[in-house]
């Protein structure tokens, strides 16, 4: 078993509200995990801790050094007064040189135009969500974390999303999806987050 992420005794509280209570989780390479639970149960908090956006109060987080993380956390925020290309180009070029063909192809699959002259400000919630998914996977990241990825997507885009996820599974990516709407992409683990604790479905 090739461990890529390990959370040990992670605790996170917001004031008196303990969202994550001493949780342990080990994620292996190629795991495809579905984390579910009611609104406000701490799914987003858990993903934010894994991505490093939020510090845990207690516990340790281990991420394999060679792994790269792509993530879509809650409502993706882009530069509203810039185009889709300006946004994605900047993010891609932070670490690598942008593969325009690949990003254009991803945009086309989601019926977005990479060379659209309109500012992102004029995009709908669904279009921004698609951009969020694209930015999370475009750089060939090895670990993909998606928080409510199908929120605001139409039926056709949900099918495109499922197809892309299945391609990523074939490419041996590690995928963690937190959502309360179940969309089957072929998970090998299902975990419920309830009252700050994780319960793995058998």
């Amino acid at each position: 078993m090739n461990k890529v992420i390990e959370l040990k005794n992670i605790t996170k509280a917001f004031g008196p509200n303990v969202v994550l209570d001493d949780i342990d989780l080990m994620i292996s390479k190629n795991d495809v995990i579905y984390i579910h639970g009611p609104n406000g149960c701490g799914k987003s908090t858990l993903l934010k801790i894994i991505t490093g956006l939020l510090p845990q109060d207690k516990g340790t987080l281990y991420i394999e050094a060679d792994e790269t993380i792509g993530a879509l956390i809650e409502n993706p925020e882009f530069s509203n007064y810039s185009t889709i290309k300006e946004n994605l180009e900047f993010l891609y070029n932070l670490k690598n040189k942008m593969d325009y063909k690949k990003v254009e192809d991803l945009c086309n699959r989601f019926e977005l135009d990479l060379y659209d002259k309109k500012n992102v400000k004029n995009y709908s919630v669904g279009m921004k969500q698609k951009m969020g998914i694209i930015q999370a996977i475009m750089e060939d990241q090895s670990i993909i974390l998606l928080d409510e990825p199908t929120r605001g997507l139409d039926d056709r885009s949900v099918i495109v999303f499922q197809d892309i996820m299945q391609e990523l599974i074939k490419d041996n990516k590690t995928i963690i999806i937190a959502a309360h709407d179940y969309i089957d992409i072929g998970y090998n683990r299902k975990i419920e987050l309830k009252s700050g604790r994780l319960y793995e479905d058998q």
């Binding site: 509203n80 007064y81 900047f90």
Partner: peptide, 19 residues
């Protein structure tokens, strides 16, 4: 502010990429 706003709005995604 008009110029820097671009980077401020992308802060979270820059942080995820360890930029």
């Amino acid at each position: 502010n008009m110029y820097i706003d671009f980077y401020i709005q992308l802060k979270e995604m820059i942080d995820i990429r360890k930029g």
